[in-house]
Amino acid sequence: MMIYVSPLSAIEDAIREVRPSHLVSLLDPETMIDTPEGIARERHLRLGVNDISEEIDTLVPPGAAHVAELIRFVQGWDQSSPLLVHCWAGISRSTAAAFITLCALNEEHPEEELARLVRARGSHAHPNKLMVRHADALLDRGGRMLAAVEALGPGRSCWEGELFSLPLRLEQR
């Protein structure tokens, strides 16, 4: 099964092309979208967070509760159809959510390998470190998730990412 990552501007085409059963939207509260046609409302997780890594007045940082909700949602995904994750640009929040999903559902794989997979499939990926830090603690990874993302360095510079896919299951090592 596949996880797809997209910017908001490509979400309608992505839904039509990949036919996901589950959708994760990570947008600031003011621009949060309604559940798109083709997705059941109960299969659409809407997390209203800004793409920031520290407290800034009037903005909503991704918190531990948001990341815990994401982890519960992806652990409840039946994996019979793809999961589609998006944020505004498809660069930071959505790539963090995809990495978190891979870690939550592939406990046997090293975090560095999963982070490198995200970057190999999406050269622009620059996962939100605050989201990853929360997931690292919630999944009891001892700092390995954050270290893996930090080791990647910045992704390819761009204003907006493009749709890319990640295999959910990787071969056992």
Rank of each mutant, 00 (worst) to 15 (best):
L117I: 04
M131G: 11
H22Q: 02
G143N: 10
A147K: 10
R141T: 03
R119K: 15
L105T: 04
E160H: 00
L170V: 11
F164V: 09
L83Q: 02
A65K: 13
R121V: 02
A97M: 04
L170K: 07
M32S: 12
R121D: 00
M1Y: 09
M32W: 01
L166A: 05
R116C: 08
L70R: 09
L168V: 09
T31V: 14
S80Y: 00
G143V: 09
I56A: 01
L117C: 06
A96D: 13
A120V: 05
A10R: 08
R43H: 15
E12A: 15
T101L: 03
S25R: 01
I52F: 05
H66M: 10
H134R: 05
A96P: 12
W77M: 07
A148I: 07
S80K: 15
L105W: 05
L70I: 07
V67K: 04
T31R: 14
R144N: 13
H66N: 15
D51G: 13
L170T: 12
I52R: 07
R173D: 12
L138Y: 08
S157R: 12
P127K: 12
V49E: 03
I15Y: 02
R41N: 06
T95Y: 11
Q79Y: 11
V118F: 03
D140H: 13
P36Q: 03
I15C: 01
D136G: 13
L138N: 11
A151F: 02
T101Q: 01
S25M: 02
L45Q: 06
F164T: 10
P167Y: 00
D34F: 03
D136Q: 06
G48V: 01
E162L: 04
L70P: 10
E107F: 01
L114E: 02
D57A: 15
R169H: 14
R72M: 06
D28I: 07
I52W: 09
E55Y: 12
